[in-house]
């Protein structure tokens, strides 16, 4: 899951930060099943070790 989130972040990393964070968040929201989003949200709450900065910021925006 961390690997997948980091891959998504890597794709958007060439965009300006705000655009990149929004892109990652939108992708997770649209394509990740709720239990996966829940797991990664918990993972970030637990410190998010190994997660790309963009992924961490994006996960914080999930609902």
């Amino acid at each position: 899951m961390v690997h997948m989130a980091n891959q998504i972040a890597a794709f958007f990393s060439s965009y300006p930060t705000e655009q990149a964070v929004a892109g990652v968040a939108d992708h997770l929201q649209k394509f990740w099943e709720p239990r996966m989003r829940k797991q990664i949200t918990q993972y970030v709450a637990d410190g998010g070790a190994g997660l790309h900065d963009l992924a961490i910021e994006a996960v914080k925006r999930l609902h």
Partner: peptide, 18 residues
Amino acid sequence: SEPGLRIPNMIDAAVDGT
């Protein structure tokens, strides 16, 4: 209204027991 599991997600979830 939420996306479901993809095939690899289904297999991972099966291994996890859900």
